[in-house]
Design a protein around this nucleic acid. Structure first.
Length: 593
RNA sequence: GCGCCCGUAGCUCAGUGGAUAGAGCAACCGCCUCCUAAGCGGUAGGUCGCAGGUUCGACUCCUGCUGGGCGCGCCA
């Protein structure tokens, strides 16, 4: 419709130009937008305002000339000038009502588009180190990334959702060593657990699994384990050195046994993460292993690419990438003096891998604390000769969890935190998914657990679901009374929908494709949540003001069509956000909170 | 110190150059003989952090200031 109006104006401008009324160097791109206020019609253009300057004339006069040259259209009922010189377009009722037929035909495909042209893109999100269960801090990235993936698919991208698994490096060694030490404790060895080890209870659980599988096979004497280990921090030493020494000993003493523990720890935590995310309705196409980059030659090739473009240099024994050349604040080490590659080297290799897999766009969803990564990833992209516009890095601001009015700490050093699993089991998947994405990802979020749990009118997700359930209920009642919903009768009688609430609801429905498209192009998942709330609001108002099941068969079917169309959009929108659309919600099912 | 993000109603937030700045919650007043009251209608609530600038037009863009969050290792 926007394109149609654009065309009308464009033609009018060309006529005016040809008649010599206007003297423009070129026809500008014409901006058409939905009006916010229905008193301003359905669509408005500011074209006369923008032309005021080049034409050196007043906007209202220009608008008048444009209107006089507008060709008549079967979709437009009225055009008027308003305010400083806006041109407002009113659609014909027939045109407005078409959307119902369209939705009933397309069903849940309404709002889908070919915007993405089937381009291969990837969205990487969460990617938390597999050193422990996911906590509520990861939940926002998971909810956002998953919803974004759904939305991008909806507009026609071939989206590959990916989790980058940091299954390589020192943190994993600390994990494996922590498990081993807990295992030794279970065997009865007197162990002083290192300050820098992972202290969560889940480590003990894994150690127990190791013990039940291997018995005492991996047991070694405390004296051997701690032989030549420098003192821990409480004993006046360095906690970093202490844990590193323990890792060296663990690898030495255990040999192949170390890999067994390592693998057990990784598998156990990773499958826990996978399960937690599945329960959170978050699905991945790929769990990408960092180790696979080390096993293959991707890192070498990535480094070679950087070297080729002469962006690598040696300093103080280490190998550096000159990121400052591309605007980063400092150069970055890719290989340490001890010959080990840094995480950044893996990141560059992963980047190369994404380009090699032919993704047109790689979207990274990072926590706000990772904002320092943007310049260096962009720098590496450019240095390898790729288009930096092909990577988009989104920062998710922190969510603060509130419980009983008090802020709940997200993580603590001691390994105590609210896990995602706990959140989902306490609040439920639907409400927690919705709460995480109902605010802009660029905004700090206060997550009120009590509100999310409350199954009441305070809770926006239930409000939306309730609208859906009400429609389902209308349909059920109909069947109980042996009345038929005849869609064709409804289509023919569509002009009977004249109530204000009906027209408002119809208008909102017709906006769904635009909302989805805008959410996709600007990565603004929360706009879908806002839209659904508005749509539910309009439906509830309508429901209260007018009866759907009326005696008049024509009107009844027209209204049923409208309800059904609303239902499709509500269900699809909820699906995009990872929430369900229940067909029945009973007040007596509510849990008192 | 440097860099990134944020400041809109009592609270939590929408509003990515347009018309009279909007929702929800909290407050107050109403609505079930009628398809689910997890609902609806109404009232009240604002110096869009402050000061300049760009523009026909600024909550929106630019600069400075101010308040808050986060980040600045051969850590992961």
């Amino acid at each position: 419709m926007i394109g149609h109006i654009q065309e009308l104006i464009e033609n009018a401008l060309e006529h005016l130009q040809a008649k010599g009324e206007f003297d423009l160097e070129n026809i500008p791109t014409i901006n058409i937008e939905r009006t916010r206020d229905k008193k301003h019609g359905d669509y408005a253009s500011n074209v006369a305002l923008t032309l005021a300057k080049p034409l050196k004339s007043n906007p209202r006069a220009i608008a008048e000339k444009i209107i006089s040259e507008l060709a008549s259209s079967s979709h437009v009922s009225r055009v008027e000038i308003a305010g400083p010189g806006f041109i407002n377009f009113y659609l014909t009722n027939a045109c407005r009502l078409q959307v119902i037929k369209r939705i009933l035909k397309l069903k849940e495909d309404f709002g889908s588009s070919k915007l993405g042209e089937d381009q291969k893109i990837t969205v990487e999100f969460v990617s938390a180190n597999p050193t422990g269960p996911l906590h509520v801090g990861h939940g926002r990235g998971a909810a956002f990334g998953s919803s974004l993936t759904n939305i991008l698919k909806k507009v026609g991208y071939d989206v590959h959702a990916e989790y980058y698994v940091n299954d390589h490096g020192r943190q994993m060694d600390i994990l494996a060593t922590s498990v081993w030490l807990r295992y030794l404790e279970l065997c009865g060895e007197p162990i002083t657990f290192p300050t820098n080890g992972y202290k969560g209870d889940y480590i003990v659980d894994i150690a127990r699994c190791v013990r039940s599988k291997y018995g005492d096979d991996l047991r070694h004497a405390q004296s051997e384990v701690f032989a030549q280990v420098s003192p821990d921090e409480p004993a006046g030493g360095s906690k970093e050195q202490h844990i590193d020494d323990l890792i060296v000993n663990a690898k030495d003493i255990l040999g192949k046994g170390y890999q067994k523990i390592f693998k057990k720890a990784l598998d156990s935590i990773l499958s826990g993460i996978e399960n937690d995310l599945e329960d959170f309705n978050v699905h991945y196409d790929e769990w990408f292993s960092e180790k696979s980059l080390h096993k293959g030659d991707t890192i070498e090739r990535a480094m070679a690419k950087l070297a080729e473009s002469e962006h690598l240099y040696k300093k103080e024994g280490a190998l550096w990438f000159n990121a400052t050349h591309f605007g980063d604040e400092k150069d970055r080490v890719v290989m340490r003096e001890n010959g080990l590659k840094t995480y950044f080297a893996s990141d560059v290799a992963y980047l190369l891998n994404k380009f090699e897999r032919g993704f047109e766009k790689s979207i990274y969803v990072f926590g706000a604390d990772h904002h320092g990564y943007i310049p260096r990833l962009k720098a590496a992209t450019k240095a390898m000769g790729f288009d930096a516009d092909k990577i988009d890095i989104l920062l998710i601001q922190f969510a603060h969890l509130f419980k009983s009015g008090k802020k709940v700490p997200m993580t603590t050093r001691g390994g105590q935190f609210v896990t995602l699993k706990e959140l989902v089991s306490e609040v439920g998947c639907d409400a927690s998914r919705f709460f995480y994405v109902m605010r802009s990802h660029e905004q700090h979020l206060d997550f009120d657990m009590d509100l999310a749990k409350s199954q009441s009118n305070d809770n926006p997700v239930y409000y939306i679901q309730y609208a859906h359930a009400r429609i389902c209920s209308i349909m059920r009642k109909l069947t109980e009374q042996n009345m038929m919903h005849n869609v064709e009768i409804g289509h023919v009688a569509v002009e009977l929908l004249v109530e204000e609430q009906e027209l408002d609801l119809i208008k909102a429905l017709s906006q769904y494709p635009e909302v989805i498209e805008k959410a996709a192009t600007s990565y603004a998942v929360h706009t879908v949540a806002n839209y659904l709330r508005e749509l539910a609001q309009l439906f509830h108002s309508y429901y209260n003001a007018h009866q759907v099941q009326v005696d008049n068969e024509n009107l009844r079917n027209a209204r049923l069509n409208l309800c059904l169309a609303t239902r499709y959009v509500l269900a699809d929108g909820l699906r995009l956000l990872g929430s369900s659309a229940p067909e029945e919600m009973r007040p007596e099912d509510r849990k008192e909170t």
